[in-house]
Amino acid sequence: MSKLLDGRVAIVTGAGRGIGRAHALELARHGAKVVVNDYGVSAAGEGTDESPAHAVVAEIEAMGGQAVVNGADVADFAAAEAMIRQAIDTFGGLDILVNNAGFLRDRMLVNTAEDEWDAVIRVHLKGHFAPLRHAGAYWRAEAKEGRTRAARVINTSSGAGLQGSIGQATYSAAKAGIAGLTLVAAAEMGRYGVTVNAIAPVAKTRMTEGAFDTSAMALPEDNSPIVAWLASEEAGDVTGRVIEIDGSVITVENGWTHGASRDAGARWEAEKVGGALRDLLAEGPAPEPVYGTA
């Protein structure tokens, strides 16, 4: 096994099970020292149990690597700051942040309760913002002191956020927000030596089982080699990208781009909008269908 990440320090959130666990193990195999974060909740975000993170740390140590447990709620602003500080105090710095933690409260939009919306948006979107904000402040301070680190952030979006998914309005909104956050963070933090990318993984996990037919889905660990490479110093020229991983297929998502346009030369009259807009829509590609539609 190569030492692509030898000596680098990583945090992986939601790393007790599934895709996060696979990321933590893959980074460790490539030489990274890993803070294994997991709040221990169920797939619906209920209860707490640190044991999954302890088990992952034991696996890393058994292979000769170094890792520590962190049980923070990543959407708790102060707890996220303490998690960043734990990595720095334990391993002497921080080079890699993999934001992965999340859970589901799937409902059709008109059946979604306010607390379900708030919980999912909080864990996914604020749970990406809080660690990224505190890690970014650390990397900015390091750069100002002349110790610019080859820092890497890998966020976790989803096809649900990029194309939409029936019955997952809340999750889709959160994951779309993460894609937008990735673009802004990449633009703002590049001056400090930081790259920020997002993946949209496809895998058989406890979050997908029961929601979809997972019989042909990739395994969680099939997503992790891409994360390991994006976390490396070698990947310094790739930033602000969203990459879908579906088994053996890697797809670079293009996202929102400006399409055809018409200039009326003055304020549009409402009666003329329909014809112009229909012409523009006819010139562009049809949108990809929302997951779950016929």
Rank of each mutant, 00 (worst) to 15 (best):
M1F: 05
R8C: 03
V9G: 11
R17N: 05
L27H: 07
R29I: 03
G31F: 10
V35E: 00
V36Y: 00
Y39R: 12
A43Q: 09
E46V: 12
G47I: 01
T48A: 10
E50K: 09
E50S: 14
H54M: 01
E59L: 09
E59R: 01
A62G: 00
G64E: 07
G64A: 07
G65D: 03
Q66D: 09
N70G: 13
D73C: 06
A75E: 11
A78E: 15
A79V: 03
E81S: 14
A87Y: 04
A87R: 12
I88T: 04
L94N: 01
L94A: 14
L94G: 01
L94T: 04
D95A: 04
D95T: 02
G102R: 06
L109Y: 08
L109C: 11
V110A: 09
N111A: 12
T112E: 12
E116N: 09
A119W: 04
H124R: 02
H124K: 03
L125S: 06
K126N: 13
G127D: 04
G127E: 02
G127H: 04
F129W: 15
A130C: 13
A130Q: 11
P131N: 07
L132H: 00
R133P: 04
A135W: 02
G136E: 14
A137M: 15
Y138K: 08
W139R: 12
E142C: 15
E145A: 15
E145G: 10
G146N: 08
A150C: 08
R152F: 03
R152Q: 12
N155C: 06
T156I: 13
T156Q: 14
S158N: 07
G159R: 13
G159Y: 00
L162G: 05
Q168W: 02
Y171V: 12
A173G: 04
A174N: 12
A174M: 10
K175H: 07
L181E: 15
V184E: 02
A185V: 08
A185M: 13
A187F: 05
Y192V: 04
V196E: 01
A198Q: 03
A198H: 02
A203G: 12
T205R: 07
T205K: 11
R206M: 06
E209C: 00
G210D: 01
G210F: 03
A211I: 02
D213W: 07
A216M: 07
D222S: 10
D222E: 15
P225T: 11
W229Y: 15
E233T: 14
E233A: 13
E234A: 15
A235T: 05
A235G: 05
A235M: 10
G236I: 00
T239Y: 04
G240S: 09
V242G: 06
S248C: 00
V249G: 00
T251P: 02
E253A: 09
N254D: 08
G255K: 08
T257C: 01
H258Q: 14
D263K: 09
A266G: 10
R267W: 02
W268L: 14
V273A: 12
R278T: 13
R278M: 13
D279W: 09
A282S: 10
E283L: 15
G284R: 03
G284D: 14
P285G: 02
A286Q: 13
P287K: 06
